[in-house]
């Protein structure tokens, strides 16, 4: 599934699903644009790792999804360097848990600003660049929690459900411009976010997976690769679950 020469921007791509996706894209010949909101050193190290292993073009653009000016600068830089964008993986996101009654305003703003507003700004900027070059593919990373909810995760669920609504609306609006917009809804995946769970919660989650195991980031990355690629050229407005049967 070649992405040879395609310019692919993956937000939140120094670890977890984002990093696995970056590796998968680089393996398939993409020009990879990495993004990270924290340490520039880590971003640069990840760029060097990808270049050394896959020998392709890799660029790192630091920006926090909640900083809309910084996000917009990323697209100006992509335009300056490549004059095009073929794939956006809207992956940057955060997880905050709290039971109803204990949810602070600050927590709502932090989660919504990152998971929803950040994704929306990326989607808008990416779609404009893609319009200029005749199309592209946008993959928004939602979550199984955005589809079925979970106790203690009302805010996170709301933000990820909103990502699905955003995907549907954008898919309808952008289809005439040959821009496909899909969402991926990972289930219980082995990432730094899920490793924060207490052992009892971890076991509870495993028990709810029909395949009886935690998913690997690479298994999500393969699905993202499919949606990024021309193999899915007639697929838009879909939410693809990658959850080992948690939702059946």
């Amino acid at each position: 599934m070649s992405l040879q020469g395609k310019v692919c921007f993956i937000t939140g791509s120094t670890r977890g699903i984002g990093w696995a996706t970056a590796r998968e894209f680089a393996r398939n010949g993409a020009i990879v644009v990495l993004n990270h909101r924290g340490s520039v050193e880590l971003l640069e190290e990840r760029c060097r790792e990808l270049e050394a292993e896959f020998h392709g073009t890799v660029v790192g653009l630091p920006a926090d999804a909640i900083d809309t000016a910084a996000v917009k600068r990323c697209y100006v830089e992509i335009f300056r360097r490549f004059k095009r964008l073929d794939v956006l993986v809207n992956n940057a996101g955060i997880l905050r848990d709290a039971l109803l009654g204990m949810i602070s305003d600050e927590m709502i703003h932090t989660v919504m600003d990152t998971n929803l507003m950040g994704s929306l700004v990326h989607l808008q900027e990416a779609s404009r660049l893609m319009t200029r070059t005749g199309g592209g593919s946008i993959i928004n990373i939602s979550s199984i929690i955005g589809r079925v909810g979970n106790e203690g995760q009302t805010v996170y669920a709301a933000s990820k459900a909103a990502v699905i609504g955003m995907t549907m609306a954008a898919a309808k609006e952008l289809a005439p411009k040959n821009i496909r917009v899909n969402a991926v809804a990972p289930g219980f995946i082995d990432t730094p976010m899920t490793r924060q769970l207490p052992p009892d919660k971890f076991q509870q989650r495993i028990a709810s997976v029909r395949m009886g195991r935690i998913g690997k980031p690479e298994e999500v990355a393969q699905v993202i690769l499919f949606l990024a690629n021309d193999m899915s050229s007639y697929v838009t407005g879909q939410v693809l679950g990658v959850d080992g049967g948690m939702t059946i």
Binding site: K72, Y75, V76, Q124, R128, T131, R132
Partner: peptide, 17 residues
């Protein structure tokens, strides 16, 4: 939006929102 795209392409610029 088509006009914006035409203008950006014609002048090789990227406009802000």
């Amino acid at each position: 939006m088509s006009l914006i795209s035409e203008i950006e392409t014609a002048f090789d610029i990227m406009l802000g929102t």
